[in-house]
Design a protein around this nucleic acid. Structure first.
Length: 227
DNA sequence: TAGGCCATCTGGTCCT
DNA sequence: AGGACCAGATGGCCTA
């Protein structure tokens, strides 16, 4: 802003009694040495001063307009930042709600965003499986539901979603992150059932899909008994 | 100290 | 035109 102002000031000094076109208000178009400006014998000192004053007014007006525009821009940006912050807060609140709904995990560890989404994905899949198994259970005894034979995937592995590729496509945090030892089970992009780790869990796993499924099968069983 | 995660800012794009 | 959404940049905090 200061720079703009000083430029205008400089220009107004350079273009002594030039024609009053704002757009030609520059060093190039309003050179004091141009023939046009050399030949102005009709201009009295009073008129010249008048022109100068007019020009100064216009310059001040333009600078003021620039300042107003700048202020408006700044205000809009501040408002946009505020909305964006709010939006992200809402998103985080929704993620917190999701964390609360997801099956129990150690209270002292908070799932990261990506882990929350992946676990939710697996959880939904496991719920679907539970429903499928519940349907099967209508024909078979409920007590057998926990057997691994009942935990086979509902559908065969889709191309690109076998156990190996599934594991290799996990998040960066799934193999090295220290934040969650059950991250393997929060890293499935497509088919959680394809991972044996998620079926039977790592030795130090605090949470596994297998456990989750068994819990849900129990819930589903009691649901079927009482409803 | 490097790396991971996060909040915030910012400019661009799309939508109403 | 203004708001929503998105992705990149940046800096702070934490942990191994």
């Amino acid at each position: 802003m200061d720079r703009v102002f000083s430029d205008y000031e400089t220009c107004s000094q350079m273009s002594y009694c030039s024609s009053d076109e704002e757009d030609s208000f520059s060093m190039q178009s309003a050179s004091p040495f141009s023939s046009e400006h050399m030949s102005s014998p009709a201009q009295t000192p009073e008129k010249c001063q008048e022109e100068k004053d007019k020009r100064k007014k216009r310059v001040r007006s333009r600078v003021k307009n620039d300042a107003v525009l700048h202020t408006i821009k700044k205000t809009r940006r501040v408002k946009a930042n505020d909305r964006e912050r709010n939006r992200m807060h809402n998103l985080n609140s929704a993620l917190d709600e999701l964390r609360g709904i997801l099956p129990s995990f150690p209270d002292d560890t908070k799932l990261t965003k990506i882990e929350t989404l992946r676990l939710a994905h697996n959880y939904i899949w496991a719920l679907s499986e539970t429903l499928r198994l519940a349907d099967q259970s209508k024909e078979k005894p409920l007590k057998n539901l926990g057997h691994p034979a009942y935990l086979s995937p509902a559908t065969p592995p889709s191309p690109g979603s076998d156990a190996e590729s599934w594991m290799s496509s996990s998040s960066p945090s799934s193999s090295s992150s220290s934040s969650s030892s059950f991250s393997v089970c929060t890293s499935s992009p497509s088919s959680p059932a394809m991972s044996e780790d998620c079926y039977y869990g790592h030795t130090d796993s605090l949470f596994s899909l297998h456990t989750l499924q068994q819990n849900m099968i129990q819930h589903a069983s009691s649901f079927l008994q009482y409803h």
